[in-house]
Amino acid sequence: MSKAHSRTVVVRNPQGLHARPADMLVRMANQYTSSILISRGGEAVDCKSILSLLTLGAACGTELSLRVEGDDAEAAIDSIEQLFLRGFDEMGDEDVADNNSDRNEPGDSSESAESVGQTDSTPSA
């Protein structure tokens, strides 16, 4: 019997878990046969479904929990954790070297404070 592995990871790349990192994450997950769930708060989604990953809305700094179950669970959880630690290769070299994940580009914070999401007044039926 395989045992379930759990681990907490943090989104470190400034732009958060957007389409490209989510794509990398799914590709990585698909290399393993284990079932991989990733959750934010109480909401757990399938790590092999990019659409589900995007509904998590995991911005930079978000803590996510991984739960992996299957024959190759240990290898899977290690390589996925690595992806998060590397910031999905979207961080400047010094960010990785300093291991300073809290640092934001000066422009980032003001931009996200001012821009607002577009309306989605269309309820899903």
């Binding site: 958060g16 995007l54 821009s115 989605d120 899903s124 039926a125």
Partner: peptide, 26 residues
Amino acid sequence: SRVLHNYAAAIRRVDSPLLADRADDV
């Protein structure tokens, strides 16, 4: 139209504007 709309709506609801805009891709 129904399924992709539901996904788009769920993505649109996330609190990060940058991530919410991925709904357009859907």
